[in-house]
Structures are given as structure tokens and as C-alpha cells.
Amino acid sequence: MGYFSNIFNGIKTLLTGMSITGKYFLNSRKGAITQQYPDNRETLKMFDRFRGEVIMPHDENNEHACTGCQKCEIACPNGTIEIIWDRGIDEETGKKKKKIDQFVYHLSMCTMCGLCIDVCPTDAIEWGQNFENSVYDRTALTRVLNEPESKVRAGIED
């Protein structure tokens, strides 16, 4: 009677499968894992360590912590970071000191590997949690991270 037991076992396994999907169907109201994205923008919060983009935090005096040591530029595998620097006179010591003119960050080339942030001796750059990085013009992806007129915070040495 292998023929009939085959049929019955077959039907049994099919019904077992249907009970699983059926269970999810009945609980579909609360079980849905879909995120209705643009609607939940307010509540959607990324984790602290989320690697969205590289940012350079500035304090209230418009000062950052980048000394222009270029370690990040060397660490970057893709040439994402370009630092345009100059030498200026330190107001306190009167010595010549390296300072950044522009910290150029090409988001379009960034693979979010995190080596630049890992290597930064003064923690001048860190991860931003912004994940909406799409733009209409790709030149907008090339960013200057240091604010205009900003300068390095006093006492930061590499």
C-alpha cells in the first residue's frame, strides 16, 4: 500500500506547510516587517556607529580638531580624502605650523571602510549617521568638510 501511504504523507506535508504560511497570514497585522520608509523618517534612528558618511564636527567657536597630518589621506584605499593644506604662523608660539585649507571628501568614492577615522590621531573626523546620500548632481558628492573660516582648536597636536 505504498501508493496510498505516499499520497497521504504527501498531503500531510503539504498541509503542514500551509499551516505555517496560514499562521503568518492570520498574524499579518502585527507581523509585518515592512518599514514604510519615507513615512517613518522621524522615528527612524540609525545606530551610533552607523557608517553613513564622514563628517568633521565643529564646536561652537567654529573650531575643528584637524591638524592636517594627512594620515587619513594615506590610510584611505580609494583616494577619497584630499587635504589641501598650508603653513601658517601659530599665534601663541610664533612657529610655523601646518594647517588645513580644505578637507575635501569625495563621498562618491568612499567605501565606508573606516580606516581614516581609525587612524586619525586627534579624532577630528567621525561617522555621520546620515544615510540619505543620493543627490541629483554627482558634484554635490564632493564635499569640503571643514567649515569656512574655521580653524584648528587650540592645543591640538598630532
Binding site: 503568518y24 497570514f25 499579518s28 507581523g31 509585518a32 516587517i33 515592512t34 514604510q36
Partner: peptide, 10 residues
């Protein structure tokens, strides 16, 4: 819609 409800979607 039914497919979505089976598949944990909306």
C-alpha cells in the same frame, strides 16, 4: 495583498 500578508509584508 494576500501574498504580502503571507510574506510578512504590507
Amino acid at each position: 495583498r494576500v501574498a504580502a500578508w503571507f510574506q510578512l509584508r504590507i
